[in-house]
Design a protein around this nucleic acid. Sequence first.
DNA 1: CTGAAAGCGCTTACAG
DNA 2: CTGAAAGCGCTTACAG
Lengths: 340, 340
Amino acid sequence: MAARAGVSPATVSRFLRGQRVRSYEAIQTAIDELGYWPSAAAQSLKSGRTNTIGVVVPDITNPYFAAVVKGMESVTRTEPYRILLANSDESSEQEDDVLADLVRRVDGIILAPATEQDETPLHVRDADVPLVFVDRDLAGGERFDAVLVDNDGGGRQAAEHLLALGHTRVAAISGSLDTTPGRLRREGFVSTLAKAGVEVPPEYDLVGDFKEHSGYQLTLSLLSLPEPPTAVFAANNLMTLGALKALHDMRIDIPGQISLIGFDDLDTGPLLRPPLTVVDRPMFEQGVLAMRLLLRRLDPDDGGGMASRVVLDTKLIERASTAPPGGHPSPARTRKTRSR
Amino acid sequence: MAARAGVSPATVSRFLRGQRVRSYEAIQTAIDELGYWPSAAAQSLKSGRTNTIGVVVPDITNPYFAAVVKGMESVTRTEPYRILLANSDESSEQEDDVLADLVRRVDGIILAPATEQDETPLHVRDADVPLVFVDRDLAGGERFDAVLVDNDGGGRQAAEHLLALGHTRVAAISGSLDTTPGRLRREGFVSTLAKAGVEVPPEYDLVGDFKEHSGYQLTLSLLSLPEPPTAVFAANNLMTLGALKALHDMRIDIPGQISLIGFDDLDTGPLLRPPLTVVDRPMFEQGVLAMRLLLRRLDPDDGGGMASRVVLDTKLIERASTAPPGGHPSPARTRKTRSR
DNA sequence: CTGAAAGCGCTTACAG
DNA sequence: CTGAAAGCGCTTACAG
C-alpha cells in the first residue's frame, strides 16, 4: 500500500489519522485503487485495544434481552465499538467457556450471569477487562458496575395487586433461585403475602428456570393439585407465556378461574387472550445504561472510581388477566386498560 | 510469560498447541499464576484470521431475526468462531457504515440486506471476505451463497387461503418493495389473486417498511376507506402485530369483519386475540444453514465452488384470524387449531 | 525438544 | 513534513 503510493507506511498512517501530509493525493488514489483498509488486528496489537465489547446474555430470543442488546447497540453505534454477542443458554458452563474466550478479544464485557454463585466472572477483571452486570447480579459482585431493577419491589407489586383483589390461594412459579431476579422476585412476592397473612404453601411455591417450558410444566402441576390456586405469579416473560399456554390447553378461564400476573411486558401483551397484567420494567434503557457505564470505564480519563450500582423501578400494568378470585370473568373490552 | 517459565516464547506457543514440551510443568505453573491468555490480536495478525463472523440484520428485536441469530450461534458454539452483531435498522446507510468496519474485523459476513439495490455488499468480497445472504437477496447477488425462503410461494399460499374462504375484497400491506421479501411476497400474493380474477385495487395495495408502526398506520388507512377490505395480508410479523393493534383499537371484529393473515409465526401466535393464521417458515434453521455455508467457505479445503442458493419452503398455519367474508365470527375455542 | 530470528501490519518517538 | 527503526505478541521454518 505504502509502496503503491510511493511513501512510507508511517506517512500512510499519518494521513489516515488526519495529519497533514504532502502526498495526500497519491495516497488517496492508492487507497481507492487497492480498496485498502488498515488491519484491525495490527492496530489492536499496537494499541492494546480491540474496540469490541463482549455481551453475554442467557438467551437472545428472549424479547427482554433482545431489547437490552438493542439498547446497548444504540450507544455503540456512534462510537468506534462493536458488539461481540454470545448466549449462555442459562448455563454457567457455557458462560465460563465463552468468557474465557471473550477476555482475549474484547475491551470490556457486559454480562447477565447464569447464576449468582459462579466465581468465574469475578476473575474477568484479573485480565484487566472491565465488567458490568446487567439484569442479574453476582454474589460478591458489589465491586462491579451493575444495572439492575428492583426485583424485590416488583415481586411486592405483584403480591399487593393480588392481595387487593382478594386472593388468598396464591402460587408463584419462580425462575432459578440461583439468579438474582429469580430469588428476589420470589422473596418480594412471598414476603409481602406473608405480611398480609397469606402463606404460600410448598405445593404453590414452585421453581423453574426462566424458560417457557418450565412455565408450562409448573402450571400444569398447579392445575393437578386437589385445590389449585386462584392466582399465579410467573417470574418472567417466557414463563408467563408457558403458563398462559398451559391454562389455554387445560381450558381454564382467565381470570375467571385463575388470575395470571407476569413479570416483564411483551410486545404482544395487550393482544393476548386475555391481555396480560404484568410487572413491567425498562428494557432498552437498561442496555443503554449498562453500555454507558462500561464505556466510561474504558475512557482513559476515568478515575477508576467506585462501582456504580443502578437500580431501576418496576411498574405494574393492569390488564385483564387478573380479577377477584372466583369473580365473573370480566370481558377484556369493558375493563379499562392501563397501558404506557 | 515465557520469562516467568524460563523458556522461550516459541516453547510456550508449542505447549499451547499441544506439542510435547520438556518444561511443561513450569509453563503450566506460569500460565496459572499469571492468568495468561495468548493475545487474540497477535494471533490474528500472524494468521490473518480473526475467528469472528460478522452478522448484520435489520433488527435484532424482531423475533424472526433473533431466532435466526440464535441458529447461527448454535453452529459457532462448537467452533472457535464468535459473532459480531450489528443492526442496520432497515437503513442502507447504517448497513454500509457497519460493513465497512466489519470487513476489517471478521473472516466472513452474513447479511440480511436493507434493500436489494444497495451495491456496497457486492464490494465486500473485494476485501476477500466471504459473504452469505440470509432472508433477503441482493440484485446482482446471484454469485453469493444465500439462504432464502420461497417468498413468492408464501404470498401465493396466503392468497389461495383467502380465495378458498371466498374473499374478493383483499388488501396487502407490504414491506419495502426494495427488499426481496417485500417485493416477492406482494407479487406472489397479488398475482395469485389476479389469476383467480380478484384484482387488488391501488387503495388496497399499500407499502410500508416491515416495522410495526407501518402495519398499524396502513391498517388504519384501510379502515378509513369507504369500502374497507374483508381480508388483509400483512408482510411480516411486526406489521401483522401493528395491524392487529389497529384492528383492536378500532374495535373491528376479527375475523367477523376483517380476516387477517400474517407472514412469519410468532411465539405468541396461538395465544393472541384471535389466534393468528400465518404463513410460517423456518427461522432457527435458516440461521444454521447460513452459518454452515459461511464456515464452509472459510474452510481452507473449500474448492471455492459455485454459490449455494438454498430456498426453503413456507407453510400455512390456519388459526382463527381468517374466516369467510362477513361470516359469523367463529369463537377461537371451537375452531380447530392446526399448529406445529 | 528448543531457541533465535523473521515477520504479520500497524503506530510513534526520534532524527532529519 | 517524512522516513527508518523499534516494538506490540504471537507463530513457524530453520538450525542446532
